[in-house]
Amino acid sequence: MLTGPHALYVKWSLSFGMIEYVLLGVMAYDRYVAICHPLHYTVTMDRNTCVKLAAVSWCSSFLSAMSICVLTLALPYCGPNVLNHFFCEVPSVLRLACTDTSLAELVVFIFSILLVFIPFLLIVVSYVRILLSVQRMRSASGRHKALSTCASHLTVVALFYGTAIFMYMRPQSKSSRAGGKVIAVFYTVATPMLNPLIYSLRNQDVKGALKRALAKQRKQVHKRMAGITAEREEFRRSSVDISRRAVSMWAQVQAPKAGSDEDSLALKHWVYQS
């Protein structure tokens, strides 16, 4: 049985991961109400409703994580205690158990359906209704505004849910350990680091600053390329001039041996033509 800081780490990491998925489903519903029923938004999504949705998300995630952790960490672990992973991920911990883990895997799969797949269905249904509502809009600016509002949320949904479904909703016997480690690092480290950038791109000031930085970088690149081109042209001209002078000097030295002035003139003409 695993106890101590390892058990706390498994519980808290799993809890916060589940909270993220449930909150993404709640955010999809918020965008559905804002775009499809804008006049009812302040009534439907008032302060009390938001607090209740947040409380349900946190409580359901903590209870689910507690159930999974109690069942997983209570298993006997009599084999090697080295975890082939970057951190204590539940599927990796189950591989160390020296007993049948079918029940634990079934519990993980059930809670994955409840807290990952069902919110994902809510997101899909919400965005289908949003797309239908956007198609009925007559204003191009209104359609652009509605789609830009959903762009950041859809990006985060694709990152989180894509990795979660691949990680937790597949049989353990068919999972790849190396692939599982890469995916786990992606949705626990890379995706949270990208969240501030993804959500801040909706801010007009951030967009303007990003565009100015890219334009400045583009000008610097063009300036460097123009300088390199000028240096290459100057080098080519210098090389041609030096070559002509060298060949001219060689022709003057070889002129007395050519046998006639006509041969010397022909040689000089060939040098300048080259």
Rank of each mutant, 00 (worst) to 15 (best):
E233N: 12
P256K: 00
T191L: 05
I19A: 08
K52W: 11
A158R: 01
F235L: 15
L122C: 07
C78T: 08
L214P: 00
S139V: 07
C36M: 07
D241S: 10
E233T: 09
Q273P: 00
L8K: 05
C78G: 10
G208Y: 12
W58N: 10
Q135G: 02
A266W: 05
Q172Y: 13
I242N: 14
L210E: 12
L132T: 01
S67M: 13
S148T: 07
M137R: 07
S61F: 01
S112K: 07
A140Q: 07
T149K: 10
R244E: 15
Y77C: 03
I110P: 08
F186H: 12
V253Y: 14
C59L: 15
E231R: 14
D30E: 14
A158I: 02
G227N: 12
L53I: 11
A266G: 13
G17I: 02
G180N: 06
G79I: 00
V156L: 07
S173T: 10
V82D: 12
L24D: 02
I113F: 11
A255Q: 02
G162W: 00
H85C: 09
K52T: 14
K52V: 15
V107K: 01
G259C: 03
S126T: 00
L2S: 05
F235C: 15
G227H: 10
A258H: 08
P80N: 12
I35R: 02
F111N: 09
L24I: 02
G208P: 12
L214E: 06
A246H: 11
L2T: 03
A226E: 05
G180R: 00
I19F: 06
S57E: 05
E105A: 08
V156R: 00
L63T: 08
T72I: 01
L94E: 07
I113E: 05
R95N: 14
V82K: 08
V271H: 11
S260I: 01
R136G: 04
L73P: 03
S102N: 00
R95S: 15
L24V: 00
R224K: 10
V51E: 10
D241R: 09
S152N: 07
I113K: 10
V43P: 07
V107T: 01
F120T: 03
V33Q: 09
V247I: 13
V240F: 10
L122N: 13
P80R: 13
V51P: 14
I183T: 06
V157K: 01
A184T: 03
L121A: 08
R177S: 11
